[in-house]
Simulated assay, not measured.
Amino acid sequence: MDLLEYMRSQDSMTQAEWERTFEDEGREILVLLAGGSGAGKRNGFWDVSHYFIAYVDCQTGALHTGDGRIVYPVSDEEHDAGGILDRFRREAVYRLKARKKIPHEVPEGVTASSQNQFLIVEVLEEDASCPALDKVLTEYRKPVVLNDEELGELTLDKDLDMFEGEVLWRGEQICVSLEVDAADEDTWADARRAMKVMLAEQDRWDGDMRSSAARELTELACEWRESADEEVPEITEESFARRIELRSIAMEPDGSFSAYFDDDDMFFGHCVVVYGSLTDGVASAEMAG
């Protein structure tokens, strides 16, 4: 089963089927939440996730570090009422009774955190005391800064798994973000290397991205121009390519990238996003935001 088929099979599960993917018996754990939260629509319910970076098995006392999720289902009505992501605080320790995800084979591309899950049975204590997890949190809060000769200072946002910084692109400062696995330094090196490859050929990449965006979006920009309240200049592919301004690039370890351009008000303040990879070149462009 490939990744797409796997994701579709997961999303088609009913709540009863989904809950059967967890162990029958609950266990007591202390869990340190950090890294955000989210909710995904499944078959008749929502799967709510809060991310953790470590937990302690209360029966054995063993400390387990690594990204994971505590999860629970909510109905469409609960989701639509709002506030479902406010149930748990970040950088806090909770004592829970929870059922662990049953290990199963997954295709390449499935994140480790999606397999390291606990389905909440009961919240036993908030702001629980746990010296071992306090040490993990102290380490987690320490800033991680890389100084690269070509990319400058890069600061790790651990919640987003992303290094952020600025580089000089054709004479102008732009923002860069390197999307990494915060726990895997090999991905740090791969993303930095990929960004430097693009930076070394920035004139070519800049031209390719501009011309591709112009080919795909000039017609749409002309449609938006017709709905403007005031007279605006005619838009051609040449003027479109010239007017957009690169603001940031998000680079992944495998060389896939997203480049974000200011639209110069051709889409009334929306942005232009160009997607591609170092190996295959520019793939597509869209108006977004």
Results as ranks from 00 to 15, higher is better:
residue 175 C to W: 08
residue 75 S to A: 08
residue 8 R to D: 03
residue 85 L to V: 12
residue 211 S to E: 13
residue 200 A to V: 00
residue 27 R to H: 06
residue 137 L to W: 13
residue 19 E to S: 12
residue 110 V to F: 04
residue 82 G to C: 06
residue 277 S to R: 02
residue 195 M to P: 00
residue 215 R to K: 10
residue 250 A to K: 07
residue 286 E to C: 10
residue 281 G to Q: 08
residue 200 A to R: 13
residue 13 M to C: 05
residue 235 I to V: 13
residue 98 A to S: 10
residue 5 E to T: 12
residue 136 V to Q: 10
residue 245 E to T: 11
residue 233 P to K: 03
residue 127 D to I: 00
residue 164 E to T: 14
residue 65 T to A: 04
residue 210 R to I: 01
residue 200 A to D: 12
residue 251 M to I: 15
residue 160 L to Q: 11
residue 112 A to G: 03
residue 219 E to G: 07
residue 201 E to N: 13
residue 29 I to N: 14
residue 181 D to N: 15
residue 235 I to F: 01
residue 207 G to E: 07
residue 224 W to N: 07
residue 116 N to M: 12
residue 161 D to I: 09
residue 11 D to L: 12
residue 289 G to D: 15
residue 222 C to Y: 00
residue 35 G to K: 02
residue 61 G to C: 08
residue 172 E to L: 09
residue 232 V to P: 00
residue 132 A to N: 04
residue 162 M to Y: 01
residue 16 A to N: 14
residue 152 G to I: 02
residue 31 V to C: 13
residue 51 Y to P: 05
residue 178 L to T: 05
residue 212 S to G: 02
residue 239 S to K: 09
residue 39 A to L: 11
residue 289 G to N: 10
residue 124 L to W: 04
residue 104 H to M: 06
residue 113 S to M: 09
residue 191 A to V: 09
residue 228 A to W: 07
residue 206 D to I: 01
residue 279 T to Q: 09
residue 72 Y to E: 09
residue 24 D to S: 14
residue 232 V to E: 14
residue 17 E to F: 08
residue 91 E to Q: 14
residue 113 S to G: 04
residue 128 A to T: 01
residue 228 A to H: 10
residue 206 D to E: 10
residue 99 R to V: 14
residue 230 E to C: 05
residue 204 R to Y: 02
residue 230 E to N: 03
residue 86 D to N: 13
residue 117 Q to A: 15
residue 98 A to H: 08
residue 283 A to K: 08
residue 36 G to C: 11
residue 20 R to F: 01
residue 270 H to K: 15
residue 49 S to F: 03
residue 130 C to N: 08
residue 192 R to G: 02
residue 242 R to I: 00
